[in-house]
């Protein structure tokens, strides 16, 4: 078992095609509100676990540090996030960047999706836009996307 062998398994996956690349212009980072959007299927213990092929999202409370990784795939190292949440969800690092003024503010809420999707249409047409609108309503300017 090796990381390169596991990655090679994904070689045949079809890539989603976007005819154009949307491109938003953020405010200066030192004035921006930043959220994390992860595809690591993180959720708080009192939230529903992710079901297989779950295309929904969970709203994560940035003031909490109790997260479970509900990712269904066995194809990732689990000890990194077990040792340090920031290996996948760098919430403490963002708090530090806010404290030193590098970023304006860390959003109070963050989002989590399940990344192991074979059919991306629901994420692209439904839960993705819904999550984006939710963050916009929270006045988030910048989103850092992290996989697992």
């Amino acid at each position: 078992m090796a990381d390169s062998d596991v990655k090679a398994l994904t070689g045949g996956l079809e890539m989603p095609d976007f005819e154009t690349t949307a491109f938003a212009t953020p405010p200066p980072l030192a004035e921006a509100t930043v959220a994390i959007v992860t595809s690591a299927s993180l959720h708080h213990p009192d939230q529903d676990d992710f079901a297989p092929m779950d295309t929904g999202y969970r709203v994560l409370d940035g003031s909490r540090r109790d997260y479970m990784c509900g990712h269904w795939s066995p194809n990732f190292d689990a000890t990194g996030i077990a040792l340090d949440l920031n290996t996948v969800f760098p919430i403490d690092r963002l708090d530090e960047l806010a404290a030193d003024g590098t970023i304006g503010k860390v959003s109070d809420i963050h989002l989590s999706y399940a990344g192991n999707q074979f059919d991306l249409s629901a994420v692209r047409m439904d839960s993705g836009p819904a999550g984006a609108k939710f963050l916009r309503d929270q006045e988030v300017d910048v989103a850092l996307f992290t996989p697992v």
Binding site: K7, A24, V37, Y113, K133, V142, A143, P147
Partner: peptide, 20 residues
Amino acid sequence: MSTLAHVFEEAGIATVALGS
């Protein structure tokens, strides 16, 4: 992950995606 980044950017949120 990148698919979501496209979608969020369309909604006006600037995104940065990490990829392994």
